[in-house]
Amino acid sequence: MNEQQLKQLITDLAALDFVHAKIKLDDFELELERPDTTSQFTQQKQTRGDVIVVKSPMIGIFHVNEAPLQVGQRVETGMTVGQIESMKLFNEVTSPASGIVERVLCEDGQTVEYDQPLIEIREGA
């Protein structure tokens, strides 16, 4: 499987709602676990808070956490949601609010500009 196919697979998977997945294509094997937050998530959607968009504080390369942020995951104010690498320095991006991750808008290793939306968090949820 080449890089492009892998990227495509990741994009396709991101759109699907699953907790556990096992993919086997020829000699390529991928096993994925996602925290089960669906039920919790739907519940919180009913008590809608404001959506906070976390934007990039600088131009650089976006890096996800060791355990990448997942849609539906809970984050607290001040928690590191990713890093921006700029001029070989890694700058932590922290969450400005507590809530649930609603969307992750950029991929690991992606070039991001100043002010570019990175993550959407539903506040207070």
Binding site: M58, I59, M87
Partner: peptide, 10 residues
């Protein structure tokens, strides 16, 4: 300076 150079590198 850093931001401009980073854009140049990227």
């Amino acid at each position: 300076r850093e931001g401009i150079l980073m854009a140049g590198i990227l």
